[in-house]
Design a protein around this nucleic acid. Structure first.
Lengths: 255, 255
DNA sequence: GATAAACCTTAACGTTACGTTAAGGTCAAG
DNA sequence: CTTGACCTTAACGTAACGTTAAGGTTTATC
């Protein structure tokens, strides 16, 4: 069935103004528009609004929500699984906050001593929306906007530990790349390890992997001046060598 | 010890800008200011910031937070107990949202059918901040800003059921007041019942009760034109009669 | 058919709670 | 002394709507 703005708003707990605003910013278009100009929302719009509200619940900005949901790779089931993870994190944070309140009460009664630091436990927002703020900027400076937008859904679900591992793998990749370049053979064990490490690095941001896509990215490293410059800063010719390692790795994997 | 804006911000997870803004709007003043003009925050400010963040966590606006915390009746322990209640409500809502996600996943897999209404369960915000939006306006029109501000902390914790009961007690109060006025004796059983109902009605918004405060309020009903007009709309002389019933009730209780 | 209430549209200004930038002063470590 | 981190105030900008206004549409009732 189809809903007008008020009907959908009442159903979902948002204002008609919100729905019109979402239409205006192309976040949630109505399923149809009557001759009189009335917006009508169908099942597809209902499902999309649910997703929007879930992302919004996590504090994500509308611009970001739009990018994620407009990604051709957006998958409803994956998204729901991601939401579940985020909600569980949020729940854990709430429980921490409850603990903080309990301890503050106990401190008030002189039963225990509560440090200033403890008084703010649970307020720290290690949550999905903050990942963009925290890591997105760094990632954007390193890899460019397109790469980050393409991996936004995955990046959003990262914990601080994930981020650290992400960076560690990259550091190891750079080191191994340097060593392999001294050896000079992309087909060597070191060269293959470079390819494998690169694949592991990609797993942090790619929703799915294919050797073909991996090779496509590798070609982009030498074709796109920004990526080339990024890797060549480690060592002259690094982008090209990395491309070759990736090809060796994917060929061997395939062969 | 004392913290600068950055130190307190890092400790609490808020920006220095936020702290400066809170100083500007008189929500959180620094404990001291150095000769160079630097803000310094001591233990009192730390505790106050914790409270601010707890209210903010519940979605409460800063203006509202300020009114509650500046109320002479503000009590830290009561506030913490109220926070706990709010946090538990929030937790229950999150769990509902998790259930909604699980059901949506099951629906996606064709295991169950999920209604459009069910898809939005958990998003409805029956929470403290919304009480002001929902009930505050109605309450303000009826009782005036001062009365509502004075009872804000209690009002914020109301559930929809509480609100309905609040109104029911008031309706019964008005009816009984009318009946008692026809009888004409504030000291009668009906008159005393008016006093008791009024006390019950107050218990929804007062953090503590005393006969003295009750009588003070009763005096205000006849002295303040708005209250007088409010009650006299039910029946001419109702404000004065109510004052007399309250005095009879509190005198009998005391004697 | 007329009426009234509820709802629809677009337009546009306002609000809240900061984020960001700029200019210039202060503090602490090397 | 230098430098980097941090402080101040000022002021403009931003995100996500809320609110008001003017005028059209829909639906139920008489």
């Amino acid at each position: 069935m189809q809903y007008t703005v008020k009907q959908l708003g009442d159903l979902a707990g948002v204002s008609a103004r919100t729905l019109r605003y979402y239409d205006e910013i192309d976040l949630l278009k109505p399923s149809a528009v009557t001759e009189a100009g009335y917006r009508l929302y169908g099942p597809d719009a209902v499902d999309r609004l649910q997703q929007i509200l879930l992302y919004r619940e996590m504090g994500m900005g509308l611009d970001q929500i739009k990018r994620i949901m407009n990604d051709p790779q957006f998958d409803l089931k994956e998204a729901l699984l991601s939401h579940r993870k985020s909600l569980l994190q949020r729940k854990a944070q709430l429980e921490q906050l409850l603990e903080t309140v309990e301890r503050s009460l106990a401190g008030l009664e002189g039963r225990i001593h509560v440090t200033d630091k403890e008084k703010f436990e649970g307020f720290k927002k290690q949550l999905v929306a903050d990942n963009e703020a925290k890591y997105g900027k760094e990632a954007r400076e390193k890899y460019g906007d397109e790469a980050v937008d393409a991996s936004n859904a995955k990046l959003m679900g990262m914990s601080p530990e994930d981020w650290e591992n992400f960076k560690k793998v990259e550091e190891e990749l750079i080191e191994t790349l340097r060593a392999a370049m001294e050896e000079g053979d992309p087909d060597s064990d070191l060269g293959l390890k470079v390819g494998e490490l690169h694949r592991r690095w990609l797993s942090f941001t790619w929703q799915s992997y294919s050797a073909e896509a991996h090779r496509g990215l590798a070609e982009m490293y030498v074709a796109d001046e920004r990526f080339k410059a990024h890797y060549d800063q480690y060592s002259p010719g690094a982008a090209e060598f990395l491309r070759n390692c990736i090809f060796a790795y994917t060929e061997k994997k395939r062969g």
